[in-house]
Design a protein around this nucleic acid. Structure first.
Lengths: 167, 167
DNA sequence: ATCATTGCAAAAGATTTGCAAGGTC
DNA sequence: GACCTTGCAAATCTTTTGCAATGAT
């Protein structure tokens, strides 16, 4: 078995918690209650979220388990550096999603309900690599967001229009 | 000749200035010195730009042709609404590029020198439409940014590394 | 004991807004 | 003259930072 293959198996078998531990240790950083709490919360659900949404879901000031806003921001950046989360911009604010142990994908973004739908297409990666090769460009990552109206919203709209027609 | 074909010819034959005039008129807005000046400036060059870069290129306060920061922001939004410019986010700030009369394209973004390279691939549009159809999603637009290192920077880096090796 | 981390308050950066004065139709 | 637009100052929103107190190793 080649060395990098076995390395990869080890990587993949680590839980987010374990991986973060390693990350912290490798940088001389410490395991704290806040980091533990945030990591557990973030990996207990799978939705995309922004800092504000996350803070809303956490205990308020004065309650057990409260984490201050600056610490939330600091820790989210650490999660990104550790390769646990991916960050991207949507309507001017940062949005996070699971990266570690989660397959590569892109998004459909509904302008109406702001929902994000995931999809994956190998052809897109091929196309991406082809373009990069044509431009002698070394790809590190990519981000594709298709914006429009999702089926659900399209149906709701049609219903509303019908209702209006009756008045 | 079908009606919509002739309509399209009219649309395409309008200059950005004329198109903006129509936009303003249709909304009961007025043609002002500032709007004229900004439109002329923005369409006199073709690079991508952000609000700050634009303001740096314009006359300073006290000089002939000065436009205040809020007016620049307001007017850029109008250009986007009028379909003259497209806006997207890069590293947390808004970036603008020509839309009106300019062919659809996507971007390679160099993380090193921050340069944007344009490319167009019909296959990408096909792929996009296929995904959308699979999800019953009505596409309004899309944005693909491939991030990495451009050829120029890759070469510069290699040279620097060689130099360091000599020390 | 040492040194990283936290929460607080405040700063920073980008963009927007209320409003009185001025400009356009 | 009616009312849209501008510039100013200030607000807003999101994210970051300085710092003294606290916590982890």
């Amino acid at each position: 078995m080649p060395a990098d293959y076995s390395l990869e198996s080890i990587e993949v078998s680590l839980s987010p918690q374990e991986r973060f531990e390693e990350f912290l240790k490798s940088r001389g950083m410490r395991t704290t209650e806040q980091r533990r709490l945030l990591l557990e919360h973030v990996f207990s659900r799978h939705e995309h979220f922004d800092a504000d949404t996350l803070i809303d879901q956490l205990p308020r000031k004065g309650q057990e388990g409260y984490v201050s806003r600056p610490t939330v921001y600091r820790t989210l950046n650490e999660f990104v550096d550790a390769g646990l989360l991916r960050k991207f911009e949507l309507d001017g604010r940062a949005v996070y999603e699971h990266d570690y142990g989660y397959p590569e994908h892109d998004h459909l973004y509904c302008q109406q309900c702001q929902k994000l739908y995931e999809f994956h297409l190998d052809e897109l990666i091929e196309l991406r690599n082809k373009v990069a090769q044509d431009h002698q460009f070394r790809v590190m990552s990519h981000r594709l967001i298709i914006s429009g109206i999702c089926q659900e919203c399209a149906l709701t709209r049609r219903r509303k229009r019908r209702k209006q027609d009756l008045i």
